[in-house]
Amino acid sequence: MSRDAAILWLKPFVARPIALAGLGILLATVFAAAFAPWLSPYDPYAIDPPIRLTPPGLAHWFGTDQFGRDTLSRTIHSARMALLIGSGVVVFALATGVPIGVLSALFPRLGHVLMRMVDVLMAFPTLLLALGLIVILAPSVANAILAIGLGYMTTTTRIVYGLTLRLRAETYVEAARSMGAGTTWLIGRHILPNLISPLLVQASFVFAFAQLGAASLDFLGLGAPPEIPSWGNMLAESRTFITRAPWLLFFPGMMIVATAFSLNLVGDALRDRLDPRFRQVFGEKG
């Protein structure tokens, strides 16, 4: 990326300190996930019954859980699962939504059929769709990604479809077409490059909602296996001890809120630098 392009991307963040803070929190989460074994003071799986349910203190900053495991180490390691599920859902939603949306907009007959199918999937509320898929596929990390991703595939397809329809009507696209440009050329040269920035906005919102969806599945015991440290699993376990050990409830929950909020802030800042014609495709809800 050239220096000017970098400045253009950073501009919305500099204008808004709170969005910059969000970006900082996200980078910190990525850092924590990457260097979890070196950052954690203890082994996140190490059981130490004599010190179980110890309140936060100097030895254990975030306290310990019902097996005497260090909550700080488990919270840090959970960042890996959060990023894995989040990026998995985003990749799935984009890898399915972009081709379906672009092709539907360029080939109206195909689009008519495909978009009707998307409408049918949208008749299923997102969480219900995810639960139904989990029943069929059995709970696991990969299936949680698929189950949550399917719900956001539909919204991503709708957005890509709307954007491509607008782009297709642009004069420069018609000009290219009348000069004999093929569909592949149009997609590669004019459609996809223009979709990059709106898709970046969509990706940050999907990433945010995937965090909440994955936490819900984990909490219900239908997401990642219980032995894997994840913020949702930690909260599910803390439920039994909320009055005896409220700190078990506090830290993982704060991490979910911090990442989801940061992603929403970043998405919002990126949306504001979008082309105004594209902005309304997202609506206010994002």
Partner: peptide, 12 residues
Amino acid sequence: LMASIPTFWVGL
């Protein structure tokens, strides 16, 4: 911020 908080965490 409110839209970024899991409902079950608020509930607990």
